[in-house]
């Protein structure tokens, strides 16, 4: 093989980059983070499945409705009414950003900009 050394170095880099996730995770096991659920409330605004996948969409709509349209009442799929408010409705039960929001957001690698305006319920450090 002419220029074999350089080609083999290239192949090693290529294979190494591709297999790096496997190498970094050798011997590790991954489990979804366990959330600290509210003690005195069993039902969220919408169903568990809805909240797991679409809470960001709901929060985004709430922000628009409350701050741009002045609409402050949300009626869920069961017909129950809620006040549209992150601080007063969501955070009434989910009392800690670190124990609830951050758990999944850290693992998913996302940092929503809710807290650019809102103050997290456990206060600022």
């Amino acid at each position: 093989m002419h220029y074999g050394g350089k080609i083999i170095i290239g192949i090693v880099i290529f294979v190494g980059l591709l297999l790096s996730p496997f190498v970094f995770n050798v011997g590790k096991a991954y489990k979804q983070p366990e959330l600290k659920l509210p003690a005195n409330e069993k039902k969220c605004v919408e169903s568990l499945e809805f909240m797991r996948t679409k809470h960001m969409q709901l929060l985004n709509e709430w922000r628009d409705w409350a701050l741009r349209d002045g609409k402050r009442v949300y009626v869920n799929h069961e017909g129950k009414e809620f006040e549209i408010s992150l601080q007063n409705t969501c955070m009434k039960c989910h009392k800690s950003k670190a124990d609830f929001c951050d758990k999944c957001h850290n693992d998913a690698g996302v940092s929503p900009y809710c807290w650019d305006c809102h103050i997290q319920p456990e206060g600022l450090k």
């Binding site: 979804q32 996948t53 999944c104």
Partner: peptide
């Protein structure tokens, strides 16, 4: 579709 990212990460 808004999939469940945490389940996918698992």
């Amino acid at each position: 579709a808004k999939v469940d990212v945490m389940a996918i990460k698992e």
